[in-house]
Design a protein around this nucleic acid. Structure first.
Lengths: 332, 332
DNA sequence: GTGAAAGCGCTAACAC
DNA sequence: GTGTTAGCGCTTTCAC
């Protein structure tokens, strides 16, 4: 059933070396041999076994993407961007989700250790900076979307601190002076950076930072609802809320609506990520947009450059973000 | 940099065969050797090269998932289910999206041809039944979520015809007699089957089938809006609408709302898929739910069974669906 | 321009 | 219980 290069060589009456040369587009091969080999390949339905090839060449031309979950559309877009760029250079992108289980992530990293892939891009990771640094010494890895503090590893992400700052500043510009924040526990780097930006914006504008305006939880939707319920139970309620993810923002909006508030009028809400739901929700959701496609292309480019060289680039590259204003935010 | 089985053998003072035996959990190896090898492996930081192993064993223990797009959360859940099951049997799942470009799909299939994976699951495909049948003769493939008519290939999906029937029947049960359908062009098998189910339900209930109540377009959101606009421009407007995807349904709802209608009262809308947006949208969306996780587990099981045997199972397995009623549907 | 042959890292049959 | 060795399918050096 499985036809090998030997079969092709025998059938074509040439050596395996010649077949290999033809298939790899080598220069020194006659027109006649080339044609003959191509015909034979077609006739036998031969397809080269990449295990053999990769074993010999010590490269696979495959990049692995490891992500916390495959149910986040953001990641899909990043991967799509990676494919766009990497495909042109003959690289394939494959992906695996670890569903927020550290064990799964470790297991998926095995593809790196066992040489099944040439490099890996981590869209969020459960690993420590130390572990990442060790990894980066022996393998080609990159972080995308979410950096890890202290990790000396190639990273591509938006400037979360600045994005948090800009988001809060926009709300302040709309006249809001009491702004709530829905974030996740501080182990999450991007959330903490966005929080820092939010804090800087308030201070910059001479606004008081109130503990009761900062809600910490998880990325799960119910957390957005809980936050909004809390904010609305305060005597001095915020007039605007910034959430570190769209899902949290939407859940917060829903809760506000169920409390009889008009989102965009009575209360302004700003999210983060610009997922497709932002445009479907009523009211449409203002948010901070990450250039996912671009980030994917860029991280693919940098990682592939690293794969091809000994001097590894371990810089942190910031990509520009955008504030998108829709119906969920309004002047006070 | 790269440490091989030879290095381990030399360092441990045993043969490569012994190292291999220890690593593969073979029976015939002494306690002492085993311990020694394990220590050496750890000390040298050895990780077996799977290219060598797989080449030799002619199997990779990897299953590839190919999907039309990675931006559909349904697929993420299916993959998650596959991982759950396959992981226990030592299989890894990797995935690739072809972004609705047939060329990409063909390219990703190369991983099958070049023996980089043991089998593939297609969550929707651009290939013809004939091509699939050829493929299935030489490789282990399965269809999931979306069947292809005439393809004699292992398939796992809900009974779309029955699901369409049930959805329409529920609307009829709520008192609706004028029911619009938003579907996509008939080349799409699952959409056409759902349409057939819808038609059967109407006829079953003695309701007239009106051409102007059937809107055909694409899976893109704007199509849902266009459909609703069309329905509401009719003299005799439908009182309920069934859409073959949640995204279409949500877009239709939004359009209805912008026309001043109260969804769930003035007009009922039912979607398909039960994506997370259903619960976030206002009103929450009634829909048909596919058992994604279960489907993933099941297709993984059947495909792995096929991989391990010569008699390939090429049956079509139906998985049960559920109608989930939320706020977007109401009695007339 | 072409072929013979070595060898990538591993497993498994065989011999002891 | 362990070692020797052939060979998985391929690329590439070397010789001609």
């Amino acid at each position: 059933m499985s036809v090998t290069i030997k079969d092709v060589a025998r059938e074509a009456g040439v050596s395996v070396a010649t077949v290999s040369r033809v298939l790899n587009g080598s220069a020194n091969v006659s027109e006649a041999s080339s044609k003959l080999v191509h015909e034979t390949v077609k006739r036998l339905g031969y397809s080269p076994n990449f295990l053999g090839r990769n074993l010999r060449k010590k490269e696979t031309n495959v990049i692995l993407v490891i992500m916390p979950t495959s149910e986040h559309s953001l990641y899909g877009t990043i991967i799509s961007g990676m494919q766009e760029y990497a495909g042109k250079l003959g690289y394939d992108i494959i992906s695996a989700a670890y569903n927020n289980v550290a064990d799964n992530e470790e297991r998926q990293l095995n593809m790196l250790f066992n040489r099944t892939v040439d490099g890996a891009v981590l869209l969020g990771t459960s690993m420590s900076a130390q572990k990442l640094n060790e990894l980066a010494q022996n393998y080609n890895i990159a972080l995308c979307c979410e950096g890890v503090e202290g990790a000396d590893v190639l990273t591509v992400a938006v400037d979360d601190e600045q994005a948090g700052y800009d988001a809060a500043k926009v709300l302040i510009g709309l006249g809001h002076k009491k702004i709530g924040l829905i974030c996740v526990d501080s182990a999450n780097v991007s959330s903490r950076k966005r929080e820092n930006g939010y804090l800087r914006a308030l201070r910059d504008s001479g606004l008081e930072v109130k503990d009761e305006y900062i809600w910490r939880g998880s990325y799960e939707a119910h957390n957005g609802a809980d936050a909004m319920e809390h904010f609305m139970s305060l005597d001095d309620k915020p007039t605007a809320v910034f959430a570190v993810s769209d899902l949290l923002a939407v859940a917060a909006c829903k809760k506000a609506q169920s409390l009889g508030l008009a989102v965009g009028k009575d209360i302004s809400v700003m999210g983060f990520d610009n997922i497709s739901m932002c445009e479907m929700f009523t009211p449409t959701l203002s948010t901070v947009s990450q250039p996912c496609r671009k980030m994917g292309e860029f991280v693919a480019r940098k990682l592939i450059e690293n794969i091809g060289t000994d001097s590894k680039d371990a810089k942190f590259y910031y990509m520009g973000h955008d504030i998108i204003l829709r119906e969920s935010t309004g002047k006070i």
